[in-house]
Design a binder for these strands. Structure first.
Lengths: 240, 240
DNA sequence: CGCTATTTTGACAGCCGTCAATGAACGTGG
DNA sequence: CCACGTTCATTGACGGCTGTCAAAATAGCG
């Protein structure tokens, strides 16, 4: 292990042992070069819940990888309406495209306390271009992003409130199972009604009605920060 | 000019004179290599309106660039509901990601009669990887795609029917102005009510109500295949 | 233990969906 | 150039899913 990697690993988790590495921007690489990535990482930054990670239209010369906690991308209309564009889980990247001539048109906010791996944009781009599988890895990453956006578009455009909530629960459950949570039925679920509503094009009141009905029907049970899927088939059957 | 390029250019338009080149996948390149692109183009294919260009989940070993006409990406739910994910105008690419290990999860249909430039996927990917600015060009392309998806998400999730229709009209107007139509007020507008409804998460009946009201208010006027923006400010003011 | 954020509840309204019938426009062939 | 079938747009009545509002209750937190 290189010296600089050791330095980073002193107080910080090492990249080679990182539990979210399979989901990060470099998740598509056949044999990730963890030493190279560890050398690139400038810092691990910790933020409290509700802190803004990036503000719409501002420049961002760093790239983050979400190491721990939840965040979300969103945009505000001037009358206060908020659309959450996507939820970010451990492994999600913040700050693409790497060759950013354009500023990002959305803001990013921490939903829980989060830990961020910090990279220099230009350095990361250079490193990425130098790797053999960087090209296809990057395209796979964008394909996932666009695909996720398309799914959400279908949810909001053509599904009822119950179907949307079911879709979101199943999506988060699948993503969390891939990250580090085991594929058991109870998940850490820090979303408030308002977050769910702003992601799905609903109101928090109506989200509450839907969740309550799911619980009454025995499909899920939930506590403030946890959600248990009791009847996976019932949820899945709502989506086609 | 190479012999193969001459053969292609015989009956077909040349790439160097292509009116939509600034919008295509290679739009971000500083000095596009039109001879190289012309060599790569295998064919120009013409399809009638309503023909399926690509069917969901099928493999696609070619990449298309829309040369002429309109098309759209969409997905069907099993009960017949349709969500149009985006409209494709001249210059739009069909078949990304280039390094497709994953099959595309949406279908593509011609909306009008269309002409498609046909490329071999592997060949195009190889050529692209060999160019200096291919990397940033590709990222810029994906950034546009994701950004457009985010905009539509905001429309459907947090805007009223009138605002959604206004947003779509302005978006298409802007894109057409950039392509080849001059920035005058009357645009070629081949969309049916059903297309607009399926793109915006509405019903064709209600789209008709909104358009009618816009016309009554003197904001737009429209004919079957044409739409004129009479009061640009009124439309813009609906969106924040 | 007081404050704040969040959830829940209930009543009511409205935007938009649904349905069906009518009519107009289009495209094609004779 | 007209006839005819198909596609598409319009209209009106009605219904419901979801939004809005406000108040009360609950949970979280310093």
């Amino acid at each position: 292990m290189s010296r600089s990697a050791e330095v980073d690993a002193g107080a910080q988790p090492s990249c080679s042992g990182c539990g979210v590495r399979s989901l990060a921007i470099y998740g598509g690489m056949a044999s990730p070069d963890f030493q190279g990535i560890a050398r690139l990482r400038r810092d691990v930054r910790h933020l409290k819940a509700k802190r803004i990670i990036h503000r719409e239209r501002e420049t961002l010369d760093t790239v983050y990888t979400l190491l721990k906690g939840w965040a979300f991308r969103f945009r505000l209309l001037d009358d206060g309406r908020r659309q959450i564009l996507s939820f970010l889980l451990p492994g999600s990247s913040i700050g693409m495209p790497l060759h950013a001539s354009t500023r990002m048109h959305f803001s990013v906010q921490a939903l829980t306390d989060v830990s961020l791996c910090v990279f220099d944009r230009a350095e990361l781009a250079g490193y990425w271009a130098s790797t053999a599988s960087g090209w296809s890895s990057l395209e796979a990453c964008y394909a996932r992003l666009c695909g996720a956006g398309d799914e959400r578009l279908i949810d909001i455009g053509r599904r009822s409130a119950r179907e949307r909530v079911a879709s979101l629960i199943l999506d988060l459950r699948r993503r969390l199972a891939g990250a580090n949570e085991r594929a058991n039925e109870t998940l850490h679920f820090p979303l408030r009604r308002q977050h769910i509503a702003d992601a799905l094009g609903l109101t928090p009141v109506h989200v509450g009605r839907v969740l309550r009905q799911f619980a009454v029907d025995g499909v899920i049970s939930y506590d403030r920060d946890a959600l248990t899927v009791l009847d996976l088939k019932a949820l899945s059957d709502l989506l086609r």
